[in-house]
Design a protein around this nucleic acid. Structure first.
Lengths: 227, 227
DNA sequence: CAAGCGCGTAAAGATTGCGTTAAGAAAATT
DNA sequence: AATTTTCTTAACGCAATCTTTACGCGCTTG
């Protein structure tokens, strides 16, 4: 993980405890035992994650959240002994990203830290989700399908059917499964539609639609997409 | 808040319950009662947040998380009756952003939804100042649109619609998405406005408005700006 | 070998969605 | 207050899409 994490927590036991857990994960950890010091550390150390105790001696935790949020968007995970729902709501609405009630398990804390860091990191770059088979490319984000570079137009149902097949690629998907996925529940019995739409997909995507290489029939069961 | 939220949950009671809570917050809500259908909805509805029950009938919730994560980064909030820490860790590490144990309080759920949506929004794509397609230039800062050097006058809604298309250029944007972006929530259903305003934009920006090269129709789905 | 089943293919009908026009209502400008 | 601009509503024809119907082929089975 190797992130820079700042802990603002007045209880030295918990602080050291959380610190060592994070360090075994490969994080670089900074500490502060009160709000004033914490805000300074946050400004100078430029951490990528903030773990904040709400019950600080010098100032209310909510103030700290608002202060940090006025100049930064780093993820904030709140630790607190207060279990009241209103406390959670207040902290989250003040700008916290997660709220963990004490006592908490270290594995859960670490998992939540990982989740926040991962998210932060993944925001940085714009990747794209594309699935390919043969000379076909399916861009799930742009909702675009190309064949040999040329864009292929699919109708709404054709597209939904294709994505259903992609999600289970390799596996055999039953008629009913595909029908409810692409058409919705209540259409499960009209499996005849599948034959019509599979033909259209083959026509648009297969090299020789009569001898499909990827959109395969599993007689008596359903269909399967081979990538 | 006005976000598009997809709920994948097999228990119809909880589903309706969560749905109405979200709707009073101004969200547009979609539902699915199983994993297969949920994944299709996620791919075609383009929600901004996913609320996922781990105990689905047809597939394991973790699989759903991984599947979605393979092509999307939308925030995922997991609901589950399982309180075991290992379950939480597994879900978070699979790609979930938050984990809420049933039974949960609605205010807390809503606060966590707000936190996720807020974060998502603040991360929003590094907006570039000027965008161009064909012989058209759009300066988002000066709010100026030119075509072949000549300034083009756009009405407020025309401009908002255009910038909504630009924000998702390349992607297919659904009718509802464009409506809420350009008109605001509450107008999601009046998709026929789009036809009128798309015509006006084409008239003002396309070389041959009847055969648009950039402002494309995706029948049954929405529109797309090709740069 | 004939009957039945599942699948592929084709084409016509029904439905939905889109483009287009025009005119009235509301808002902004003068 | 008058005028212009912009937004909303309604209506209609056409195109895209979905659904229905029909038929032929190959395979299995009695």
């Amino acid at each position: 993980m190797s992130s820079r994490v700042l802990i603002i927590e007045d209880d030295p036991v918990i602080r050291r405890f959380v610190r060592s857990s994070l360090e075994t994960e490969g994080c670089e950890v900074f500490e502060a035992d009160c709000a004033g010091r914490g805000l300074i550390e946050a400004g100078t150390r430029q951490p990528e994650l903030l773990i904040l105790d709400l019950g600080l001696p010098d100032r209310d935790g909510l103030e700290v959240i608002r202060d940090v949020r006025s100049w930064s968007r780093i993820p904030i995970i709140v630790l607190s002994a207060r279990t009241q729902e209103s406390e959670k709501v207040a902290a989250l609405d003040a700008g916290a990203d997660d709220y963990l009630v004490k006592p908490f398990g270290v594995p859960e804390l670490l998992a939540r830290v990982r989740a926040q860091v991962r998210r932060q990191a993944s925001m940085a770059v714009g990747e794209q989700a594309v699935f390919g088979f043969g000379d076909v490319t399916v861009d799930m984000i742009r909702r675009r399908v190309t064949r040999a570079g040329e864009e292929v137009h699919l109708t709404p149902i054709e597209y939904r059917l294709l994505t259903a097949l992609i999600r289970g690629h390799g596996r055999v998907l039953t008629h009913r499964q595909l029908m409810t996925d692409a058409w919705g529940p209540g259409y499960a019995e009209r499996t005849h539609y599948l034959r019509i739409y599979m033909k259209q997909l083959r026509e648009k995507l297969e090299q020789s639609p009569a001898q499909p290489a990827h959109l395969l029939t599993e007689t008596g069961v359903g269909y399967r997409l081979l990538s």
